[in-house]
Simulated scan of single mutants.
Amino acid sequence: MSIIGVIIATLVVGITGLIIGILLGVAGEKFKVEVDEREIRIREALPGYNCGGCGYAGCDALAAAISSGEKPVDGCPVGGAAVAEKVAEVMGVEINETEKQVAFVKCAGTCDKTKNKYNYYGIADCRKIEYVPGRGEKQCIYGCMGYGSCVRVCPFDAIHIVDGIALVDREKCTACSKCIAECPNDLIELVPYTSEQHVRCNSKDKGKDVKLSCSAGCIACKLCEKVCPTGAIKVNDNIAHIDYSLCNNCGECAKKCPVKVIS
């Protein structure tokens, strides 16, 4: 190959690359998507777990939603007040301080308190067992099945099966709500971190039927309701419910509960 051929080939490749580069530059400028600088700063402030607890696919999507005004500055349940404060600073707004929340499992039916209908041998998955006859082996169809579906979806190792029921580690819980969405019996709810009284039962059955299933179930006697000085606890649909905005943690309901289902 002559030197002229090499030079011509080099020029062709160089000119072709130059033209492609110019075209890409023009296309990039023409079709570029403007990114809100606030969105980038918000994303940097978020914890980065991408857990989905905020209702979005991940932290990138949440940052976009906050910067556009679609989601409030405290939209990240995992980051809590510290992250909300940083995001509020980026958005140039003030934030009302909110109390930390944690997940709570409404069941006290441990192995020694609940009764079984039969022995179950199969896949340990609450979502699948809800379709098994009787919704699993436990006599109470409202309580914790104990097969740990909530444990497997928790990204923070904050919930474990202890003595047949799920228990939450309040110090590790970030209120991401993944366990709430996973539980087929709707047993898990968010409660204030500072709350001390909780009704550990979810049964809608009448008292006599509850006793046939579990020795630690609410029997809807309403004694807790009668002694509460603030009217924070009410019995509806055969189960006691606490309004945490009214509860002052006096503990009178727990002292009066005959089945000790209020912890």
Rank of each mutant, 00 (worst) to 15 (best):
Y244M: 11
S67H: 00
D237H: 14
K172P: 01
E29I: 03
M91Y: 00
V102F: 11
V13S: 02
K256Q: 15
G148C: 13
E225D: 15
E225L: 12
R200D: 03
K260C: 03
M1L: 15
K208V: 13
F104R: 03
V191E: 09
R135P: 03
I239K: 12
C253R: 08
E89S: 15
R200M: 13
K208R: 10
L167W: 01
S203L: 11
S263D: 04
P133W: 07
G164N: 01
I165A: 10
I4V: 14
R43C: 01
A65C: 00
T16S: 09
C59Y: 00
G58F: 01
C140Q: 08
F156Y: 15
K222M: 07
C111G: 07
H198D: 02
R135A: 12
E94K: 15
K71I: 06
A9C: 06
A45C: 13
A166M: 09
T174S: 06
C51T: 11
G28C: 06
P133Y: 08
N119G: 05
G109H: 04
P184W: 04
A82T: 14
S263I: 10
G55K: 03
V35W: 05
C201F: 04
M1S: 15
Y131I: 05
G92R: 10
V227Y: 03
C176I: 04
E97S: 12
T10I: 04
P133K: 07
K234R: 12
R38S: 08
Q139C: 03
A82V: 14
S203Y: 14
G164H: 02
G143W: 01
M1H: 07
L23I: 14
E29P: 00
L18C: 05
I66H: 00
V259K: 10
A65E: 02
E189Q: 06
I95M: 10
I129H: 05
A27P: 10
C54M: 03
C176W: 01
C126W: 00
K86W: 09
I161R: 08
V235K: 12
I4Q: 10
K172M: 00
P184T: 02
T230G: 03
V33W: 07
Q101N: 12
T110D: 06
E85V: 08
S149G: 15
K115D: 00
C228P: 05
G58T: 07
A166S: 15
G5I: 08
K138L: 09
G207Q: 02
N248M: 13
R38I: 11
E97V: 14
V83A: 09
C126I: 05
T10G: 15
V87F: 11
R170A: 10
T230Q: 10
V227W: 07
D169T: 04
Y121A: 14
E189T: 04
G14T: 08
G92P: 02
I123Y: 05
G148K: 12
G146D: 11
T110C: 11
L246I: 08
K206I: 15
K178N: 15
V102N: 05
I262M: 01
L246F: 06
K172W: 01
H241C: 11
G217L: 09
T174C: 08
L187M: 12
E252Q: 14
P47F: 11
C250W: 10
K100V: 12
I7N: 02
G251C: 13
A81R: 07
V73Y: 00
S263N: 05
A82Y: 13
I180C: 03
C107P: 09
K226Q: 13
Y56L: 01
